[in-house]
């Protein structure tokens, strides 16, 4: 065998080489969660690769997981394309997480064809630092997903596809596939595929932990009101909070 040709082949990033082929210092963005960065072969979310997040339910738990990365990527002068999110993300929450909301580009498509087209264009034009596509209603086949993977490979952006959990049983060209499950403290991540390394990692990532600690009700909370009434003299303990206090127990 011609060893020169073999060495050239081994340099190709798109050639699967078991656990040793893919370099650890590939372009990536820190996920903002130590557990994820340390367990993933890429040391964070890989750039220029398709990532699949598989989950059930409302398909809205994934975004907080990506928020620290989006915050970093929004510093680039490029779009963060959110394609077909089930609900429009709330800008004040994005801003609070450090995301520059002027970089956010929400795209709504009518059908699968446009969804795939918009995703591919967002990847191939090089105008986006991140492309997140909600594909839970999509019937994209393997060839179409492969096409997106190729478009991602030619870009330097974070490409995340969000699918239903039942897609886990199907083959996918994505470099990284993670199953997400909601837990009482946040999200559980099961890595079902990662190119260049073994899969099977189970991670528990705490999300909004400051909100999950149950407070002792009722308690004074900052009053955000532009009422002509004097806020200091306005008691929070009234009918509404009384009902709430009952509900808290």
């Amino acid at each position: 065998m011609n060893t020169v040709n073999l060495s050239q082949l081994l340099k190709r990033q798109d050639l699967w080489q078991g656990t040793s082929g893919l370099s650890h210092d590939l372009p990536h963005v820190k996920s903002g969660f130590h557990q994820i960065d340390s367990q993933l072969h890429f040391n964070g979310w890989p750039l220029g690769h398709s990532i699949e997040l598989l989950c059930d339910g409302l398909h809205i738990g994934e975004l907080p997981l990506l928020m620290p990365a989006l915050s970093e990527l929004s510093q680039q002068h490029r779009w963060i394309a959110l394609i077909n999110p089930p609900i429009t993300p709330y800008a004040p929450a994005l801003q609070a997480a450090g995301v520059d909301t002027s970089r956010i580009l929400i795209i709504r498509t009518q059908d699968d064809k446009d969804l795939l087209w918009a995703t591919e264009k967002a990847l191939s034009t090089g105008t986006c630092s991140a492309v997140i596509s909600w594909m839970h209603n999509s019937d994209a086949n393997n060839a179409q997903l492969r096409r997106l993977q190729l478009a991602a490979a030619q870009s330097d952006c974070l490409h995340v596809q969000i699918h239903n959990s039942d897609q886990a049983q199907k083959a996918s060209p994505a470099s990284l596939r993670i199953q997400l499950n909601a837990t009482e403290t946040g999200t559980e991540l099961n890595v079902i595929k990662q190119r260049g390394s073994a899969a099977g990692q189970h991670l528990d990532v705490a999300l909004f932990s400051e909100l999950r600690d149950e407070q002792q009700p009722p308690q004074q909370w900052p009053l955000f009101s532009d009422s002509i009434h004097d806020a200091a003299n306005h008691s929070l303990i009234d009918e509404g909070t009384a009902v709430a206090a009952t509900a808290l127990h």
Binding site: H77, W79, A91, I106, R108, T125
Partner: peptide, 29 residues
């Protein structure tokens, strides 16, 4: 102000041509 082959506006032009104007938007606080 990015000196790329394609500017961010390029993607908007493509989206406007293929989809409709209301199909893509940004968020303002």
């Amino acid at each position: 102000s990015r000196n790329d082959q394609h500017t961010p506006a390029h993607l908007l032009n493509l989206l406007a041509a293929r989809l409709h104007e209301q199909a893509f938007f940004s968020l303002d606080i």
